[in-house]
Write a protein that binds this DNA or RNA. Structure first.
Lengths: 230, 230
DNA sequence: CACTCGTCAAGAGCATTGCTCTCATTTCTA
DNA sequence: TAGAAATGAGAGCAATGCTCTTGACGAGTG
């Protein structure tokens, strides 16, 4: 009854997993644009049309990879944060940033799929938006816990954010409860700054310019942390 | 003599221009991955193989578009800067950032070609690196002029950069002479922060979260400017 | 035991791509 | 004006994503 149906479903799940694994490998070598269902099928000793039993289109495969990717980087970030002393907020911020960067450097194409230019013709479905925020959730927790511990002291160097931003700040506060609009905007600045650094390094803007990238990254991240008040 | 030779060359230059124009239009609708020489040829009423007389490969067309793009955004940035009072350094910084953002929002695919994930399989040739720095040159000039005018006062919130970064800082100082290593690293933070913001907005990370993007951008840019000391 | 029905792999096929090659024609140059 | 160079057209190759049909297999039902 159920056992037989599960038997088939199990081999199916196995196949799906194998497909995404091979696809991820192709992604690493060819990039998102070069991902070819036929090539994946060939690697599996399968005929190309058979793949379509498991992923109705190339975009569906991409979606699966994207969701997996968001979960993977989210998990990496969660682990990095968990390894820190709870009250070492600056350390947690640095650890999270490093985790993002290391994850990205280890699989640049997968990172590009998540945070680079959107794949042309591909429209991300709803399913991707929830795992997409997994790393941000960790970040928000650090900020709000630091605030609640009274350990957040943003230097008074920024103008206060205009009132019109308060609704957006309210939305972001679901991730980092209780903090002021000012802190929210600074947090956004730091977070986008992190990905700006990673993007510049990964997408080649630092080529022929920056050689000590580890050190520059750590230092700039520390600066951004200070800006938020960590 | 020269006039006749120029006749052919002139029509050739005209054709090259027309090709890049159409390619840019395709870029705007399809993205870099969807740029097809055959489609461009079709739009020109040309046979596909004829295109190869003008661009030996798809990558060469991309290279042309990239160089044009860097020059275009560089020019936009130069104009934005030129329209400001010379001694309004914070205003110049904001104007430059706004120019980058507006240029990017107006032609997201072209921007993605320059600052997004690299096109898979495409290797940027040397010719692109000089125009690539055109906007950065303007930025560097603002920083160093502000410094020389004694108008740069970075708040003491950052740790001082490690010595190992001094060689990189020295390299960057060709763009912004005389400033300290500390200012250089802050300047990098602000510059990457700018592109981090633009990327997040353009690549969809702000979707369903941020609605008042103009205001958030201006505010965060102001914050980053303060970080550098503007 | 025989029968049906859902799942699957395989293959052919269509339209598309980048790129190469050949051939004829046009244009420039010596 | 004759030869050389540049250009356009077309066929062709190896890929791609995707669809459709066909035939095999296996698990439930009469």
């Amino acid at each position: 009854m159920n056992a037989s149906r599960t038997a088939r479903e199990r081999v199916r799940a196995e196949l799906v997993r194998e497909i995404t694994d091979i696809a991820r490998r192709h992604l690493a070598t060819e990039g998102a644009g070069g991902l070819s269902l036929r090539a994946v099928a060939r690697d599996m000793g399968m005929v190309s049309s058979a793949i379509y039993r498991y992923f109705p289109s190339r975009d569906d495969l991409l979606t699966a990879l994207i969701i997996d990717g968001y979960n993977a980087i989210g998990e990496a970030v969660e682990e990095a944060d968990a390894a820190c002393a709870r009250d070492d907020f600056a350390g947690r911020w640095l650890a999270v940033c490093r985790a993002v960067r290391h994850w990205a450097l280890a699989r640049p194409h997968e990172y590009a799929l998540l945070y680079g230019s959107p794949v042309p013709g591909y429209r991300a479905p709803e399913d991707t938006i929830e795992p997409a925020s997994r790393d941000t959730v960790v970040y928000g927790r650090i900020i709000s816990e630091a605030f609640q511990a009274g350990r957040l002291s943003p230097p008074e160097i920024c103008p206060s954010p205009p009132d019109v931003l308060s609704s957006d700040a309210e939305a972001v506060r679901t991730l980092m409860p209780d903090v002021s609009d000012d802190v929210v905007t600074r947090a956004i600045t730091a977070w986008t700054g992190l990905f700006g650094m990673v993007n510049f390094e990964l997408f080649g803007q630092f080529n022929n310019v920056i050689t000590h990238r580890d050190e520059l990254f750590d230092h700039n991240i520390a600066c951004l942390g200070r800006l938020v008040g960590l």
